[in-house]
Amino acid sequence: MLQFIELIIAFSIIILVVPQTPTENIVLRKLLETGFFTNYVKAKDFLNKTTWFLIFLFLVLLIALNSKVFF
């Protein structure tokens, strides 16, 4: 079950990070179009925090699943 969650997180990271470029950020533009954010800075901050959280969670799961100590 944890391996499936890890796989979902990995795909989420790919979906979030790949379209982000210095000149064009499709994910950020789509977040702004939802209307949940009042301005560009708040949407960018949310995207940044979400991306780093998913990366950290992926690494924790990767270590936990490959360690004999936890399981």
Rank of each mutant, 00 (worst) to 15 (best):
I26H: 09
L16M: 10
I5N: 05
K44G: 04
A43C: 04
F46A: 12
S12V: 03
F46D: 03
P19Y: 00
L47C: 07
E24K: 09
L2A: 12
T34F: 02
F11L: 15
I8R: 06
K30D: 08
I8A: 11
V18L: 14
N48S: 14
K30P: 00
V41T: 14
L31W: 05
I26K: 08
I8P: 00
D45W: 10
L16I: 11
Y40E: 15
T21Q: 05
D45H: 13
I13W: 00
I9L: 13
A43P: 01
F46E: 04
I5A: 11
N48E: 11
T21F: 03
L47I: 10
A43V: 01
T34E: 02
V27M: 08
P19I: 01
V41K: 12
T21N: 06
I5H: 06
V41F: 11
D45Q: 14
L16G: 04
F4A: 15
R29I: 06
V17C: 07
P19G: 04
K42T: 15
V27K: 02
V41G: 05
F37L: 02
V17P: 01
N25T: 02
I14V: 13
T21Y: 04
I15S: 10
P22H: 01
N39R: 04
L7V: 06
T38I: 08
A43S: 05
L28K: 03
R29N: 12
V41P: 01
E24I: 09
L32G: 00
N25G: 00
E24F: 07
I13G: 01
Q20E: 12
D45F: 13
I26E: 09
L7I: 06
K44Q: 14
E33Q: 11
I8L: 14
D45M: 13
M1E: 11
A10S: 14
E6F: 08
N39L: 05
I14E: 06
I14K: 04
S12N: 11
F36D: 09
K44M: 06
Q20S: 07
I14M: 13
E24Y: 09
S12R: 03
T21R: 06
A43F: 00
I13C: 05
T34N: 04
L2I: 10
L47P: 01
V27N: 05
N25L: 01
N48W: 11
E24D: 14
E6L: 13
K44E: 15
K30R: 13
A10R: 07
T21A: 04
I5Y: 09
Y40R: 11
I14D: 05
E6N: 13
L32I: 08
M1N: 09
L47Y: 05
V17T: 13
F11A: 15
G35A: 01
N48K: 14
I5G: 04
L31C: 06
T38Y: 10
F37E: 02
F36K: 10
F46H: 07
F11Y: 13
I9H: 03
K42I: 11
T23M: 10
I26R: 08
K30H: 09
N25Q: 05
L28A: 02
Y40I: 06
N48M: 09
K44L: 09
N48L: 11
L2G: 14
L47M: 15
K44F: 08
P19A: 03
I14F: 12
D45K: 15
F11S: 15
E24H: 10
T38L: 10
V27H: 00
I9T: 06
P19E: 03
L32T: 02
R29G: 04
K44R: 13
V18G: 06
N39V: 03
L16S: 06
L16W: 03
V27W: 01
